[in-house]
């Protein structure tokens, strides 16, 4: 149990909290991940690619298991497996909309490898648990640096291909006729999702990846029909719930990912509920 209690002086509380190295690291990594997940998640939802994000995080699990087996930092296993898995998926099927079968096929194969790695490594249970549900409070400063580098690469990549990515998400055939390569955009997009899920797994884990990669963007899309604004709202929501989760978990002995997943789910319900009410009153007035 944590002996420190919440004092209602948030500035004071934060000061105290960030005085602990592990909390500072968690806030740093959590902030980077939330920004990246909010942005990439927007495209994931726009391109109807939640299944790809789901599959890539699970593939990352297999990669991390392999890395642990070889005595390497799991984040490298995550990055290598999700990236190669993403590229294979993009190459197998050009059209993002009809990629389900290819994703499922690659997912099954990679998870098969994961099972092998786990069976080969005896002391795996706790490692597996933190991969599945996230272990942000234990993140090392080396991993914070890796997360920062990965985050900056994604930001740079998204800002370079923003228009083509958006165009191909909305009107694939016209974008192709305009000279954009759907193969390359598909590969780049899957790489973005791969790297984003790899770093997000550290915060929410493989099983809760949607809490940061899908739900904030889904809420944002209900709140704004302008892509850039939507992306910023998605980032804001991801940041809000991540900070909230970290803050609360400092006082409560429950997992951060639980607080994040619950907070974002409540926001989602709230948005839908409020929209139902406003739509209802609008139609009534007519």
């Amino acid at each position: 149990m944590n002996p420190i209690t919440f004092s209602f002086n948030i500035i004071q509380d934060l000061k105290l909290m960030l005085g602990y190295g592990f909390m500072l690291h968690a806030f740093e990594a959590g902030t980077i991940v939330a920004i990246i997940a909010g942005i990439v998640g927007y495209f994931v939802v726009l391109r109807r690619s939640s299944f790809a994000a789901h599959a890539l995080s699970h593939i990352g699990f297999a990669g991390a298991a392999g890395a642990v087996l070889m005595g390497v930092n799991p984040i490298f296993g995550l990055l290598v497996f999700t990236s190669s898995g993403g590229i294979i998926m993009a190459l197998l099927e050009r059209k993002a909309a009809s990629r389900d079968v290819e994703i499922g096929t690659v997912l099954a194969f990679m998870l098969g490898l994961g099972v092998l790695f786990i069976s080969l490594y005896s002391g795996y249970a706790t490692e597996a648990y933190s991969l599945l549900f996230g272990e942000i409070l234990g993140i090392s400063s080396a991993n914070v640096t890796i997360t920062l580098v990965a985050g900056l690469v994604i930001l740079l990549a998204v800002s370079l291909i923003y228009h083509p990515l958006l165009f191909s998400s909305l009107d694939e055939d016209v974008a192709e006729a305009k000279g954009l390569s759907m193969i390359w955009i598909g590969i780049l997009f899957m790489l973005l999702v791969a790297v984003a899920t790899s770093i997000a797994v550290q915060v929410v884990g493989v099983l809760l990846i949607f809490a940061l990669m899908v739900t904030p963007a889904a809420i944002a899309m209900r709140l704004s029909k302008k892509p850039f604004r939507g992306m910023m709202i998605s980032v804001a929501i991801a940041l809000l719930v991540t900070w909230f989760g970290l803050f609360v978990s400092f006082y409560e002995p429950y997992p951060v990912s639980f607080f994040i997943a619950s907070a974002v789910f409540l926001l989602y319900l709230l948005t839908r509920g409020l929209q139902k009410i406003t739509n209802f009153s609008l139609t009534e007035r007519k």
Binding site: V158, I161, Y162, F167, L180
Partner: peptide, 8 residues
């Protein structure tokens, strides 16, 4: 117009 442009 801008769909094919690189950069942000």
């Amino acid at each position: 117009i801008s769909g094919g442009e690189w950069g942000f």
